[in-house]
Design a binder for these strands. Sequence first.
RNA 1: GUGGGAUUAGCUUAGUUGGUUAAAGCGCCAGUUUGUGGCACUGGAGAUCAUGGGUUCAAAUCUCAUAUUCCACCCCA
Length: 421
Amino acid sequence: MKLTAPKGTRDILPSEIGKWHFVEKQFMEVCSLFGYDEIRIPTFESTEVFSRGVGDDTDVVQKEMYTFDDKGGRSISLRPEGTAGIARSFIENGMGSMPFPIKLCYNITAFRYENVQKGRYREFHQLGAEAFGSAGPRVDAELISMISLFFRRLGIYDSMLRINSIGCPECRKKYNDSLKGFLLERYEGLCKVCRDRYEANPLRVLDCKDERCKTVTAEAPLLSDSLCNDCADHFVGLQEALSDLDIDYEIDKRIVRGLDYYTRTVFEFISENVGTQGTICGGGRYDGLIDQFGGGCVPGIGFALGVERLLMEMDSRGLVPGENEKVSLYIASIGDETVALAHRLCFDLRKNGIAAETDLTGRSFRAALKYAGKAGFTHLMIIGKDETDSGVVKLKSLKDASEKDYDLTDLVERLKEEFYG
RNA sequence: GUGGGAUUAGCUUAGUUGGUUAAAGCGCCAGUUUGUGGCACUGGAGAUCAUGGGUUCAAAUCUCAUAUUCCACCCCA
């Protein structure tokens, strides 16, 4: 009981790994159908990647990053999300001169130093995707439809999708000014935190859960109502494109994403089954990110979904995929003389793609049989003096107790044929 | 960073107003006359009662601190 996993981390045990594999496999398959290729990037980056990418005054960067100096004096941070690192990789690997669009998907762990809560961990898993090189709303819709298909494959058919537009830097600046004007008149009615937010990021005030703030901001002008013409057209275009694909959505004008790089389209897939966190999947457009990294004007859009939260959602919907059962064979030997033979047989079977086990713990014959029954093997084979004398072994199905004879000489070949032929 | 609940065997839990050797179920191991599993029966291993102080003749039980966990604020996937 002395050594424990660090706060906010957890072991994913063999008994639950099946769910993870299932979800990951479905995700990668769907991504591939949409032309997204997997990319793997480092777990840690120069701190600058995140401070410049995610944004220096976001909470994520300011108080939630695992940052340290390595032995060479470099400031390093464990990735709190995937997009910034991928943007860095995009530029570093010259993807800007490859044919657009560049579509990438990923499966990562991410790290945030937060207080642990339901659906919130310090090390967590994200599946995500990014599309670079197209500014039009059809990419946005395509990306969203990919998530939608993924959810459908898992058995989630109802729409959890909320969309919004937060405009470009120009309309946001204009809007910020008018929002500040609005808030200043009602400054006294705001909660403490929001008074601080008023200067740093007034947009966030709209997100505040404090009842006083909610009533104050109920009448506030909304960014999506003050978009410039181009941004408004883009938002309308997204809605049309989603409708073309029969994707249900709701417009939620209060969605404000907490990372600085977002522009125009933002969206979330939300649920009530993941604690107060709500967001299973979140994403949006980031048309200025690559440019901010010095990679030129390349628009982009992406999303990430929290695997822990997704699994929680599936659990509460009863969508737990059953492990598909594979053939596995247990060989019980009788007497010391056949132990080596049993072991050799196991290796032969394994070489031919058949999972096989024999005793490694010194169990008695009887105990070995019990073990084979409990451990979930599909077949049982007994090797003893009778078998070595006659050259014939019986294979018993542990499912229906049926038995079948095999010659020891061509056993492996015949089993291979039978199970996988 | 701020609040509230919890912590007893691998797991789920019981443990009276503080009182001798901390209890059960599941799981694990073994056996029920060494050649056929799941069931049943019998036995066994396994707990410094989260950790460290304090009160007391005596603490799993009262008290303080710390850690972890769960929930909420906050933030986000």
